[in-house]
Design a protein around this nucleic acid. Structure first.
Lengths: 102, 102
DNA sequence: ACATCATGCAACCCTTTGGTTGCATGATTG
DNA sequence: CAATCATGCAACCAAAGGGTTGCATGATGT
């Protein structure tokens, strides 16, 4: 829920790949998402639940499979946090420069 | 250096606070950064080295203290990654909508 | 010189994490 | 109904993470 947990969820190469795969906008099953990732289905499943816990994806049971889709609102939230962080740093540095010259 | 490692570095509440504290643009010592964070100086030191390893901050020895400052280029890089991720998802969803209607 | 301050390094500890295997269960297909 | 497919759950394991304490060292202040 916090910004830190969202960044933590993105801080793993496998999970970044999963997010990347879900950028297609489609609902993908665990088996589909496992394809091409050199680890077990259960490993992928665990990663997906981490992403879901952080609010980055949502899941829906469809027949015998569980489909995951991206929920980009949290991604946008994290992006805005970084945008503000960089902007505040810029402003602070400008103020410091001015103070040194003055 | 990878995006994943930058996100991982940001994925901890203490380290986010350190980044926030460094948004002032100033060079701060470990002792200064420890103030107000309820944990040991060595704990803070470890976190700072994680941030430095990820390229988010840089350090410089000044007399008997080690000063850290923000290096926002990596932050901007991470922000751009998230911006592109959200944009690609948007486009893909639009294409899917069009395909369903067609 | 001496006391103090800021730090680094190493050892240690407990918890979390990333990964696996084995088995049970509910849906699908033939 | 039988076989198979997709998944969940639990146990387990090694490695990494976050934290501490103790000690050594180099810089500062008196």
């Amino acid at each position: 829920m916090s910004n830190a947990s969202v960044f933590a969820a993105l801080g793993d190469a496998t999970r970044l790949k999963l997010v990347s795969r879900l950028q297609s906008g489609r609902h993908l099953s665990i088996a589909q998402l496992t394809r091409g990732l050199e680890l077990t289905r259960q490993g992928v499943s665990k990663h997906l639940h981490v992403l879901e816990q952080a609010g980055l994806v949502s899941s829906k049971r469809v027949g015998r499979e569980t489909r995951f889709r991206l929920r980009p609102d949290r991604i946008v939230r994290a992006r805005d946090y970084l945008t503000r962080a960089a902007a505040q740093w810029d402003e602070a540095v400008e103020r410091l420069k001015a103070a040194v010259e003055g």
